[in-house]
Design a protein around this nucleic acid. Structure first.
Lengths: 345, 345
DNA sequence: CTGAAAGCGCTTACAG
DNA sequence: CTGAAAGCGCTTACAG
């Protein structure tokens, strides 16, 4: 006699429920959950299917408040940028009554094994990775334990089926460059992010495309790659602006880099925007308060983080995702740091 | 026959251990832990004493990785400022293998009851409050459950015996003002933080004291209070700088406010530091990159957060604290935004 | 490879 | 006010 096993709600099943449904002992279910090897592949598969169906989660008995927690993992902390992400995440988790566990990888792009062990014992609702990713074995391990993963932005072209939220970097590069070209600039420098990061290349491609559109050649000497921080903008800015034939405009890879360029220009006595146009990227809150205020590309970091968090919570609730890759739109924000060049052709 | 009960280590005791030692049933211990009312005051006291002695913590059985987690609670998120705190906390928790649960009160200075319920079910190693505090009943409730609390900075004079880490605000106000007076300024404006926040008043007092030292009167019209954000600095800066007898120097309550002042000066065509000296407060990373770079007071936010975290972990481990109030030292950092006044007396 | 049995830490009616 | 007893969700030797 088979009982019916209606799904009462995500997380309501115990291992007894699962055992009952699959027709095995609680011992066996426990073994599957703990990754023991002494379970037949077939049995394991049936148990895992049932666990998934029920969105099984380890009970802590009394947890009237708190719908669970998610792991928010940064590649590293980066003042204003990371805070925008945190705010976007928090806006969603606060209303969903979900807690946020914060960590960073200290600059690495792949978490180490101890981190994964921690996640497996914590069993969070899900893991949100920012500018970092998992190795394939790590990803499989989390998948086996039914811990969903979503990535914000991506540092390289990963073909793994990990849901990812980013923004249209190519379009951002295009919009920024078109803006400068339309103002009449013909010698435009690009300071992008690190060369091995995909978004840097995407923006550079948009930069190139905008030039091609109007038939203006790109001087390879004016294209630089570097870290997203202020000092890279300052360093490259200094170099570019002391070139014999210096550019009349600089497109920086981040607002922080743009601040470095602004400072280099100031030290060289160049007036922005009269003698040099500067455009940033990100549209951090501080971009409105630099002197002069930065023209920049709005990358909707809060929205990106919020969207990713919502996707993660949906996955945790067993709701399927319509798309596994979402790119939010980038937009040009014109402020005071761009103007026609002093001597347009 | 009494058995001896050596303390095997913090967190190693179960309720059975406690029951055994006190000579009551596990039921009774469980009741005490859950705040039931049907326990004699005397019994409750003895059980609580034993729990405290053993640093009892709810067992989750298998938790080989992860020494536990702490709750990090912000009054609200404030880009660069909050990130400095987070970094300071993270530096300590990462080496101690402790997880950080992040939340914010959305601007409130006292958490609501749902938050406390969450903490009580989570049972973290401790709670770190940043620019916020608990009500007395909330504090007692956490104390009863052996969850230690440490506060970073304080928004008002609280006499509650809560360990607190701050910095010497009065001294910061003094150092900044002395610097300006020594440069020869005699009309110095103060834009402090919110008037109802103690640190704003402490800095204002240091400002006043520095004037008194050299017998220079403070013009009350030049003393303003406002939020710590950029726009308050901009607003007050605009007002002050369009005064008939405008100040030759402005001491802002935060680097963010100082950026607002810098912008106001720029819009009015005033050269900093030639026609106006500006000094900030906090020494956020961005202060080195404004144009001109900000002279400021270094408030060691990372150290403050790190110290507070260490105190919290010590308390969680049952180590007594030598002091319950630590103020770290503030220092003057001279950069480019201050200089002698254009027309010194 | 499987599961009955013992056990763990804890909580909750309920009898006194 | 107290605690014996039943029970919960889960894990772990260990016998087959």
């Amino acid at each position: 006699m088979t009982k019916s096993h209606p799904i009462a709600g995500p997380g309501s099943a115990t291992i007894a429920t699962i055992a009952d449904e699959v027709g095995v002992s609680v011992t066996t279910v426990s073994k599957v959950l703990n990754g023991r090897s002494d379970v037949a592949a077939d049995t394991r598969a049936r148990v895992e299917a049932s666990l998934e169906r029920h969105r099984y989660r380890r009970r802590s008995k009394r947890q009237p408040t708190g719908a669970g927690q998610i792991d928010l993992v940064f590649h590293e902390f980066n003042a204003a940028w990371s805070m925008e992400i945190i705010r976007g995440v928090e806006a969603v988790t606060a209303t969903a009554n979900v807690d946020v566990l914060l960590s960073q990888l200290g600059g690495d792009h792949r978490p180490a094994q101890p981190w994964l062990d921690g996640v497996l014992t914590r069993r969070p609702l899900g893991v949100l990775l920012v500018l970092c990713n998992l190795t394939e074995p790590q990803h499989q391990q989390l998948q086996r334990q039914l811990v969903p993963v979503v990535v914000v932005d991506t540092d390289s072209a990963t073909s793994a089926p990990v849901p990812t939220v980013g923004s249209n970097n190519w379009n951002g590069g295009l919009l920024a460059t078109r803006h400068l070209l339309e103002l009449g600039h013909r010698r435009i420098a690009l300071i992008s992010g690190p060369e091995d990061v995909l978004c840097s290349r995407a923006r550079a491609a948009g930069f190139q495309f905008a030039h091609d559109e109007v038939g203006v050649p790109v001087d390879p000497d004016l294209v630089r790659y570097g870290s997203f921080y202020v000092d890279a903008g300052y360093g490259h800015g200094m170099e570019l602006l002391t070139l014999p034939d210096r550019p009349t405009a600089i497109f920086a890879g981040s607002d922080m880099q743009a601040m470095g360029v602004l400072r280099a220009a100031w030290q060289l006595g160049l007036n922005v925007p009269r003698e040099l146009s500067v455009i940033g990227y990100d549209n951090l809150p501080v971009a409105a308060w630099t002197v002069p205020a930065l023209t920049t590309i709005n990358q909707p970091l809060r929205d990106m983080a919020g969207t990713a968090t919502q996707m993660l919570l949906d996955l945790a609730r067993g709701v399927g995702l319509s798309t596994s890759r979402v790119d939010l739109v980038t937009e040009l924000v014109v402020r005071e740091s761009t103007a026609p060049p002093a001597h347009p052709r």
